[in-house]
Design a protein around this nucleic acid. Structure first.
Lengths: 285, 285
DNA sequence: GTAATAGTGTCTTTAAGACATTATGGC
DNA sequence: GCCATAATGTCTTAAAGACACTATTAC
């Protein structure tokens, strides 16, 4: 911070000397239910965007918590998780969104976070009275500006009811408040690339899992089908990705087949070599 | 945002009802000078951390600019770049840092940004009276907590004068104010991985460059020496990374050799296949 | 001439992907 | 029996890395 800003700082001790900026955290919490990717949303009870879905979030408590702590607190409030439950959830910062017009009431800078959670019981209302629920990502309208894929928040909020250029055939009550469609889209992009280079796909599963369950995570997040045999060999060949528990599943698959062996997450923090998404050459340039 | 927070919002319209949180942007601006990576720093003129180096930055103007705009404005003020010059600089958001104790005066959330710039004239003082300068990264003391490499800001600021566990043999006046050592370290980590998957190493160079100059960027950012022949063939084999200008350099290298051909940045936004860093297996797990 | 560099060629090893094969279990 | 699945094997192709080699330029 530049030294002359001391003056600004002194002035800032008097909140009335500056227009305030509110700081919030918003959560993109993802989980897998019945093989489909779901995101935790709350229904807005008042204006603006009354009745629309929104990402859960809230104010950072000034002087009392860090951004990560605020995000963890919000997530716990909406999901009912305790500290032990939160320990099984992957939480990382996604990015900050601070366009002055993104909230019509005042300038709000939101620090978005991304969470990968195993399948949890139904969400409950948080400290507030809003209904929280896990919603399939595929049901949401995430149409965005065609020329700004995901490089960084360009912070152009979309108006409620304004339909974008995308195929809007399932946009009944599925538009998100504020710029939350963009935040969610950025979170999904991050999730898709994160599981390429890290073993965090295991954060969507229970402590013990089969290779097929792990493959289902990749298929849900990437929206692609993977070759079962090659995937199996690849996962086992990456050092530290998974380690065997020695056990096997109690049942075969729903449609039959041998009982799969069980694994747990290994100690690697990065995957070498990585599990690269198929067929990105076309969309990449 | 959850609906019950309407009340919070209404209250927030009166700044005195809440302890305020200040929102700033800080810049990690990197460039290459004489083959070494440099970062733009300002010398602090007043307490706290008087006399220490700090990242350039400043307050976000409430209601008047986005985070990216604030970051671009700060960078322009410190470097003297106009809009045209900024167009040749890569700018992206790095992450936000909001531990309540990171600034002793009040709770400040800083949205850090990362910039890759070609070699620029000497930095000048910004709108403030601080001296801004490009400092070799190798001269700075970036020792950090050994168990928290870079996963996300853990927001534990270091005390000035408190030496970490690293080899502190060049820490005379090279400690950064606030938590800026961590922010810079995170920026360097981001830069190191960003040039693996994107062609952004070209952002450190002029419009025309040779393959050797591009290799010098990778060597400076990664801190490793690369095989010249393999690097050359690899760069030319990645579609859209560079394209030939048809011209050649006017001189050979300082120590002799043929005149190198000139290239400019291609149209790819991601590199496929990527240019992976050598020898990461050991440090990775 | 000497030395260092630009650029290319060749070979080995590793990894990814397509496909086939065997065994197991649900129905 | 039927069929989908778990797990492994084989083959081809792509890519990375080690190394050699030629041509060119500064000094």
């Amino acid at each position: 911070m530049a030294p002359q800003q001391e003056e600004d700082f002194l002035a800032a001790y008097d909140p009335r000397a500056f227009d305030p900026i509110a700081v919030t955290v918003d959560m993109v919490a993802l989980t897998l239910r019945a093989g489909a990717l779901h995101v935790l949303l709350v229904r807005r009870g008042g204006p603006p965007f009354q009745g629309a879905w929104a990402l859960p979030g809230g104010f950072v408590r000034a002087g009392r918590e860090s951004l990560d702590q605020a995000a963890a607190r919000e997530l716990a409030e909406e999901t009912g998780l305790d500290a032990a439950g939160l320990g099984r959830v992957h939480l990382e910062q996604l990015g900050s969104y601070g366009h002055p017009g993104r909230d019509p009431r005042m300038h709000v800078v939101s620090v978005a976070h991304l969470a990968f959670a195993p399948d949890l019981p139904d969400a409950r209302a948080g400290s507030d009275a809003a209904a929280a629920a896990w919603i399939p990502v595929a049901e949401l309208d995430l149409s965005r500006q065609p020329d700004a894929p995901t490089r960084r928040p360009n912070e152009q909020g979309r108006r409620p009811g304004a339909h974008g250029g995308g195929p809007g055939h399932r946009s009944v009550g599925t538009e998100l408040a504020f710029d939350h469609a963009r935040i969610l889209a950025d979170g999904l992009d991050r999730a898709r690339s994160k599981i390429e280079y890290t073993p965090l796909a295991t954060a969507f599963l229970g402590e013990h899992f089969t290779i097929s369950e792990l493959r289902a995570v990749y298929e849900a997040v990437w929206g692609a089908t993977l070759h079962a045999g090659n995937f199996h060999r690849k996962v086992l060949s990456v050092p530290g990705f998974v380690e065997s528990t020695g056990g096997t599943a109690t049942h075969g698959s729903v449609r039959g087949g041998p009982r799969a062996r069980l694994y747990r997450a290994g100690d690697a923090r990065l995957l070498h070599p990585a599990l690269l998404r198929p067929d990105r050459e076309e969309t990449v340039r």
